[in-house]
Design a protein around this nucleic acid. Sequence first.
DNA 1: GTAACTGCAAAATATTTGCATCCTT
DNA 2: AAGGATGCAAATATTTTGCAGTTAC
Lengths: 154, 154
Amino acid sequence: MRALPMVYLITIPELLMVTNVKEILKKNQLSITESRRKILQLFYNANDALSHADIEKLTGDDFDRVTIYRTLQTFVEKGIVHTIPTADNSVRYALCKDNCTEGHHHDNHVHFLCDECGKTYCLDHVTIPDIQLPKGFHQKQTDLVISGVCKNCD
Amino acid sequence: MRALPMVYLITIPELLMVTNVKEILKKNQLSITESRRKILQLFYNANDALSHADIEKLTGDDFDRVTIYRTLQTFVEKGIVHTIPTADNSVRYALCKDNCTEGHHHDNHVHFLCDECGKTYCLDHVTIPDIQLPKGFHQKQTDLVISGVCKNCD
DNA sequence: GTAACTGCAAAATATTTGCATCCTT
DNA sequence: AAGGATGCAAATATTTTGCAGTTAC
């Protein structure tokens, strides 16, 4: 068995990811701009949720603060990312899975917030059991937010 | 059977509630001030959660905006009220039930947000089923936030 | 070329902090 | 009387809006 040249191991994933991001923008009828590409890429690189401040830090001064706000808003409207409910004031965003359609985030989410490191996890493999609501209440979206200690801080 | 005079039906609950509020403040080693009494009373009168803006409206210009911030913060620290996770930016507060102890809101909450009227309900009688988390994740607090249409807007 | 996106300036809103004064105990 | 709570002023942080210039298609 012959080892592959190291360069493949580095460059191919990068190319794939960039393509991925562009395709997602196209699929959502968004023009491909630098800010949208880079910010969406951040979400694909991060394995946890990102706040506006996180994105500002990660992009340095590439983009205006306002551009980040507008980009995030666009992504939410298109169903590319969703906001995560948190008890503190902070607003965090995470990638939606395939079943988010434009303007309708009707999928059930389980989010885990680590009290130690502050990371936010989307636990896609955890399913939310059916909840019996009182009469007259109609359930559209369900968000289950669990906090505690994550696997890294365990 | 003789009907009670109407006055009882009005005055007794008020007296009871006022007493209630003072006792709760005492129990939490807080001095009894007008802002604390009135704001805590608002929570007992409201059947849904209140935002800072709600409280500002309901109290007119009785109190400074800063006093409301500080009072809410104190109540949260003492475990008298808790914040409700919402996907939009808004911060809302609701009364804790008995099992909240100072600094530790370790009870499980089910909250319902109505998309129509915007009301927030604490559904205390709905229980959250046990959730199986991936290995290494330790659950401390669980917040179940359900949105949809409430019984009034049905 | 045109529509849409971005950056800049500024407004609007939300939250925090310091300090002098007032109130509760 | 003493410690804590409040009101006011101001600083800081967050989000939104308008508009002119630039970019994607």
